[in-house]
């Protein structure tokens, strides 16, 4: 999966935030819609699409979508 595809897949987990809001450098935890339920969707998206395991700490420690992508890729 490329970074662009990851950003798209990440955006698809959100219902209310417009897709164009999402860029590689988007600080996802600052989005209004971000919360524990979205976090679960992201974990399951990464599991589904990339077969990698994201932990709660990973989501807390990363700021931007790109950072998260790089972390997942490095696993």
């Amino acid at each position: 999966m490329t970074l662009d595809e990851f950003v798209k897949a990440f955006a698809a987990e959100f219902d209310d935030t417009p897709e164009e809001t999402f860029k590689a450098d988007t600080r996802y935890k600052e989005l209004d819609e971000w919360g524990s339920l979205i976090a679960l969707s992201i974990i399951s998206m990464v599991d589904d699409e990339m077969d990698k395991r994201v932990t709660g700490a990973d989501l807390r420690n990363c700021s931007t979508i790109e950072e998260l992508f790089n972390l997942v890729e490095s696993k």
Binding site: L40, I43, T55, G56, A57
Partner: peptide, 12 residues
């Protein structure tokens, strides 16, 4: 409960 950690453990 750290729900996201429990979740990621459970599904893997």
């Amino acid at each position: 409960m750290q729900g996201d950690d429990v979740f990621s453990f459970t599904i893997s």
